[in-house]
């Protein structure tokens, strides 16, 4: 059952990706709502897969690579759907949905077996710590997509190259607003995730901070987004360089999330 919903989700994300890309690349007007509906159905089957796994495993399914990637993709799609509904920016989906598909595909390629929960993870803190971290990661993913779109649109406007892609992508102000919202939601979430993580660490491992690779890289990620938010709130910092830093922040976040688990063994390695 879990497998069926998971692979159904994968297929639906695949079709949704094609639909979103078709909307972006075709020159004739097309029904963006079709792509959106497919994605919503994919999101629902994905929810079903996660809930089912939750029941089967008896704990929140974010304790190995498969589960983490799957949960990450789920929250990206959920948050993206919120922004699409709110700002009518279906062209953003052409960038976010393929990424969610890749992550889901990755989840499908790693072992999916349910293992008994590591004793260190058996705590209520797992909920606040991990859900917040995943929420922050998902907001930062969308803020990166928005930053890339901002760079593309800004480039088109400066070079006066106003082709089909330019017409399809959202306006600079909307991109800026979505990006700022992602930052405003994601940064506090990451902050609280790090704090709850520290408290949990002190209970489980006996120390608040152990300079484990995951912790160090999280801190670097935190500093980048702190700088972005600080700049925004004090001088209204935005535009090209802010967008580039957002992309860099995302790449480091991705490394914190996936790279550290793969290449830097530490306390956070559970896979």
């Amino acid at each position: 059952m879990t497998e069926i919903s998971f692979y159904l989700t994968l297929a639906l994300y695949g079709i949704a990706t094609l639909a979103y890309l078709a909307c972006l690349l075709r020159t004739t007007p097309c029904q963006a709502s079709i792509a959106r509906r497919i994605l919503i159905v994919g999101f629902l089957t994905h929810c079903l897969a996660v809930i089912h796994r939750f029941i089967a495993a008896g704990h929140l399914p974010i304790t190995n690579m498969h589960e983490s990637l799957s949960f990450f993709a789920l929250s990206i799609v959920g948050i993206y759907l919120y922004f699409e509904t709110r700002y009518k920016v279906n062209s953003l989906g052409s960038f976010v949905v393929p990424f969610a598909l890749l992550i889901t595909l990755g989840a499908g390629l790693v072992p999916t077996t349910i293992k008994p929960l590591n004793p260190a993870l058996q705590s209520a803190w797992i909920y606040s710590h991990t859900i917040l971290a995943f929420g922050a990661y998902s907001f930062f993913t969308i803020s990166c997509a928005v930053a890339v779109l901002f760079l593309i649109q800004s480039h088109f406007l400066k070079k006066k190259h106003l082709g089909n892609l330019f017409l399809k992508l959202p306006s600079l102000d909307i991109l800026d607003e979505i990006g700022y919202r992602c930052l405003a939601f994601g940064f506090p979430m990451l902050t609280v995730a790090i704090i709850t993580g520290a408290i949990w660490a002190s209970r489980a491992w006996g120390s608040y901070w152990s300079w484990d690779p995951k912790e160090s890289w999280s801190l670097i990620t935190w500093f980048i987004y702190a700088a972005l938010l600080h700049g925004r709130l004090t001088t209204g910092w935005r535009g090209k360089r802010a967008a580039i830093l957002t992309v860099i922040g995302f790449l480091i976040m991705l490394f914190t999330f996936i790279g550290v688990n793969l290449w830097l063994p530490g306390l956070h390695s559970y896979t």
Binding site: L157, L162, F166, S171, L172, I174
Partner: peptide
């Protein structure tokens, strides 16, 4: 698409400001 200069300006402004 806009086919007069002043409409083109409005369209461009929309792409900047929404």
């Amino acid at each position: 698409s806009a086919v007069s200069v002043s409409f083109a300006a409005v369209e461009l402004a929309r792409k900047i400001f929404g």
